[in-house]
């Protein structure tokens, strides 16, 4: 099992379907846009689908993300 430390953060694209994770960092200019959809540091997410787009579930909604965006979201896996 991974230890919870920021160095272990993986891009969202590394998660498998159904894995849960917490966002620790969002890179790039999409951060603002993602925040308006409820994705910000601290948000708990679950990956629902990886193809043809990434689908993540947050408390608020299901969001579809293209891989280029998903790569910029860094997360820590939750048990």
């Amino acid at each position: 099992m991974k230890r919870d430390s920021s160095a272990d953060a993986d891009p969202l694209t590394k998660l498998k379907t159904r894995e849960r994770a917490r966002i620790v960092r969002i890179e790039g200019e999409e951060a603002m846009e993602l925040a308006s959809f409820g994705l910000y540091t601290g948000t708990e997410i679950q990956v629902k689908q990886r193809f043809p787009s990434y689908i993540v579930q947050t408390d608020e909604a299901e969001l579809a993300l293209e891989p280029a965006v998903a790569r910029k979201i860094f997360v820590l896996r939750l048990k």
Binding site: E33, S53, A68, V69
Partner: peptide, 8 residues
């Protein structure tokens, strides 16, 4: 632009 979409 990038593709981010809320799925109702």
């Amino acid at each position: 632009s990038s593709f981010v979409l809320e799925v109702p």
